[in-house]
Design a protein around this nucleic acid. Structure first.
Lengths: 118, 118
DNA sequence: CCATATACTTACCTGTTTGTAACTACTATC
DNA sequence: GATAGTAGTTACAAACAGGTAAGTATATGG
């Protein structure tokens, strides 16, 4: 039974595919939503992010650049020595809150269902 | 500013990573959410799904098997000749409605922002 | 026997993602 | 000069995702 979704027209299917895959283009992959979640704690430095998220520096650098390009994260070079850089969520990243919270919530509930644990 | 998220503890970061990546394990990739959306129109046969979603048979078969294993889609072999098979969303797939709707909605809005079109 | 239909499966392939390990540039401190 | 710190970068590699094209098993109809 498909109660949670409205019936879609054929054009709606094409448009839905486009919309969903657009979202995946921006925040798909193993780490991007995790990084956004972690930065929800507040601005972080590169190594802090690497540690808090548990991600390798090479991938972290790559993902942060993409998130910055898409306007979801901002990068600030601090006037310190050695140089430090701070990463912070942008206002625009708030538009992803429903996506992230839904993903997080579903993952938690699904794991409980799978393991039978609460 | 991180208004959309609550501040998280360190343990919360690990747990969030787990939850988000669990969700991605089940519905990540290019096609799974699209297939779930398309099946929101009602049960479909294999070739209908391939056409409606615009996906190749090899990948469709693979993704449907994974969705079936995770209890999101059911597969019914019909007593027809040649044999036909019907795929349908399960009740459990309704739990993904927030995820899919959020992804879809964000994709639509993001595309409007990017293209400046309404 | 051939053509057609359905639901895949198989073989091969390309491109991408993610990770490890080592390295780099620059500065400060001892 | 050696050491430490930071933020990456580079080279290499394995695994994975998704696609194309051809093929398969079974049945029906002409």
């Amino acid at each position: 039974m498909e109660k949670a979704f409205k019936k879609h027209s054929e054009a709606s299917c094409k448009q839905a595919r486009l919309a969903i895959q657009d979202t995946l283009d921006v925040v798909g992959g193993k780490w991007k939503l995790v990084l956004i979640w972690v930065l929800g704690n507040g601005k972080r430095k590169f190594n802090e992010l690497s540690r808090d998220a548990g991600i390798s520096p090479r991938i972290l650098s790559k993902e942060l650049q993409e998130l910055e390009i898409n306007g979801l994260v901002s990068r600030t070079v601090c006037n310190t020595r050695p140089v430090t850089v701070e990463y912070e969520l942008t206002k625009y990243s708030n538009t992803l809150s429903e996506v992230i919270l839904a993903m997080h919530k579903w993952g938690v509930t699904h794991r409980k269902k799978i393991t039978g644990k609460a």
